[in-house]
Amino acid sequence: MKILEVIHVVNQMVADGVIERYAIGGAVGATFYLEPVSTLDVDIFIELHATPGSVLLTLDPIFSYLRDRGCTMQGEHILISGWPVQFIPPPTPLAAEALANATEADVNGLSARVLTPEYLAAIALQTGRAKDKARLLQFMEVHALDRTKFEELVECHRLVDQWREFQRQFVL
């Protein structure tokens, strides 16, 4: 299965010291808790540190490692086993916290680090595109969230207005 190959490669990157830790987010991450929905790419949050002697944060070591293993670039993505993968340094404090609190899942003996449902839902609320709202609705419908934890995140990351608006829009 190709997506398993992606997870295997990313685990290998951790083992080889190319990245420190990662967490799968986006639609692939949500699949661990919801029904699968079509997606074109895999979002992988990573912790990025400056290389010794440099103050710049760069994805170059990741791309160079993967290129050496036959992967090719496709725009902002790198193709791993046919899947366009995007490595994302956390763009917000919420995403950074989500990465730090990600959970370990077992996929047929393969370990995968995945964002928790509450963080995936809070990131969806923060991002706010139509597909993110649909994902948040799915989380609500199947009761995949610990509402207390989720509402703590909403408050802590100043998403109260977005949450009220979402509830108003979808009559929750």
Binding site: M1, I3, A27, V28, P36, G82
Partner: peptide, 11 residues
């Protein structure tokens, strides 16, 4: 594992 298989097919 079944859901990831579906995800592969959808992709």
């Amino acid at each position: 594992i079944e859901k990831l298989r579906m995800l592969d097919a959808l992709h």
